[in-house]
Amino acid sequence: MNRETFEQLVSQWLDNPADDHLRRRVEQAISDSPELLSDRRHAELIEQALHAARAKGPAGVDWRRLRSRIMSQLRHADAAPARDDARLDELLARPTRLEARIDWTRFQQRVSQRVAEAARMRVVTLRLRRVGAVAGMLATAAALVVVALLLRERPAAPEGFAQVRVVDASASAQPAPPSAFASVRVSRPAGGAVEPVRPAEPEFFLYIGPAGGVDASASAGVGETGA
């Protein structure tokens, strides 16, 4: 058994000196390695010194006085909360130095003035709020009317004929007076709901051909172009 292991064994035995099993193991280890005997002896001496230290205790203490002092501290601690409350009440009741430095009459007047001003401002503010509320309601109503008008459904284009103007679409020419007129039949798809009609274009442009005379009574299909 090496020294480190033996020291641990001895320490276990010193923890439980009445344990015979541990004591026998220690003695067996020493009989196997006699040089370990001094290690056991040193451990025992130190342990005895430690035990003896308990009996000695710290020297030079007046234990009666220490006890008295501790109890005095406890009594003081016991009474402390109630005493602290009383002290606080006394402190709060005491007039402070601050009070002597203030002109309380003038201060009261100032406060009253400010309160009166605040009251007036409050009245004005309330009136403005009322006016604002009424104006807001009127504006909302007007907006609703406008929206209603704008969203009114446009009637569909009636069936019938639309006037078509024929103009010379040459690039060089300014919009020239129409040289011919034609009529275009507008009709609705049969049956079912009518889809919203797009607003009709103001003019239909039909390029019929070189200006040379066109029979205005001739009908042409929408979108039809001539050569």
């Binding site: 205790g57 710290p58 006890r67 501790i70």
Partner: peptide, 22 residues
């Protein structure tokens, strides 16, 4: 009864001081 705690102080003050001292 605070006197009972006084008895506990008497019993343990040496040990308490000893442990703290060490």
């Amino acid at each position: 009864r605070l006197s009972a705690f006084d008895e506990l102080v008497e019993r343990y003050q040496r040990r308490a001081t000893s442990v703290s001292y060490r």
